[in-house]
C-alpha cells in the first residue's frame, strides 16, 4: 500500500512505472480511499448497518466486497465482516453464453443469514454495459427476495446498454468504447496471478488487437 501522505502526482508516477502498459488512473491508495468512502455511503444510505449484505460478483467484485465489509466493520463495531459478505456467480445468467467460448461457473456463497428481506449491495469492479448487473439481478431472484438491491462499483466507465445505474461509484471514468479498463487486485492478481502485478491499480489501455478481456466486464 502506498503511503497516504504521498501526493497524488507522485503516487501516479510511481504506479505508472510499475504498470507494463496503459495509463494508471487509480493507484492502490486511491482504490482504498474510494472503498472507504463507499463504505460510509452505504451506511449513510441505509441509516446504519441493519440488514446489509454485500454480494461480490466474481472474479474481482468478490475481493472488493470483502474489503468493503471490513471497512463497514471498522466504521461500525456491531458489524462482523465475515457474516455480511458473499459471492454471487452470474455465469449461467449471462445473455451472451452462446456467443462466447464456454465459461466455467464460480461458486455462489451466501452469508448464513440469507438474503430474504435484506438490503443487498451488489459489488463489482467495472460498470460498463450493465449486462452483468442484469444477469446478477436474475441470479438474485432465484436465491431469495431482498428488500432492497443496491449497486456499488469501483469504476463506472459509461456506455450503458441497459437502464441500470450504480448507487455508489468509486470513480467515474470517461472512456471510449475501444479502450479497455484493467483492474488489478492483490487477492486475484498477486501471487500466481498476473506476473507483472506489483500493487492494486486501475488502468486504461489503448485499443490493441486481440487483447485479453480479463478484468473487464460487459
Amino acid at each position: 500500500m502506498a503511503s497516504a501522505e504521498a501526493d497524488g502526482e507522485a503516487t501516479r508516477t510511481a504506479a505508472r512505472a510499475h504498470a507494463p502498459s496503459g495509463r494508471v488512473v487509480l493507484s492502490a491508495a486511491d482504490i482504498d480511499r474510494a472503498l472507504t468512502r463507499i463504505a460510509h455511503e452505504i451506511l449513510e444510505a441505509n441509516k446504519g448497518p441493519e440488514d446489509i449484505v454485500l454480494l461480490g460478483i466474481p472474479r474481482r467484485g468478490y475481493p472488493l466486497a470483502v474489503r468493503l465489509a471490513r471497512k463497514l466493520a471498522a466504521a461500525d463495531p456491531t458489524v462482523v465482516a465475515e457474516q455480511i459478505v458473499g459471492q454471487l456467480d452470474i455465469t449461467m445468467f449471462r445473455d451472451d453464453l452462446s456467443r462466447q467460448p464456454t465459461r466455467s461457473p464460480s461458486p455462489t456463497r451466501l452469508p448464513s443469514q440469507g438474503i430474504d428481506n435484506k438490503v443487498v449491495v451488489l459489488v463489482d469492479d467495472v460498470l460498463y454495459s450493465g449486462r452483468t448487473i442484469r444477469a446478477a439481478l436474475d441470479a438474485l431472484v432465484d436465491l431469495g427476495r431482498p428488500r432492497i438491491v443496491r449497486l456499488a462499483v469501483l469504476v463506472d466507465r459509461g456506455h450503458r446498454e441497459l437502464p441500470i445505474r450504480a448507487d455508489h461509484v468509486g470513480k467515474n471514468l470517461p472512456t471510449s468504447a475501444a479502450e479497455k479498463v484493467r483492474v488489478r487486485l492483490t487477492e486475484i492478481d498477486g501471487e500466481g496471478g498476473d506476473p507483472e502485478f506489483t500493487e492494486d491499480h486501475v488502468a486504461i489501455e489503448a485499443p490493441r488487437d486481440e487483447d485479453s478481456t480479463e478484468g473487464e466486464i460487459q
Binding site: M92, L97, S98, Q100, P101, T102, R103, S104, P105
Partner: peptide, 12 residues
C-alpha cells in the same frame, strides 16, 4: 451439457 452446449458453434 452446459460445457458442450453453452459455447458458440464455432468454438465448441
Amino acid at each position: 451439457l452446459y460445457l458442450l452446449m453453452s459455447a458458440k458453434e464455432s468454438t465448441r
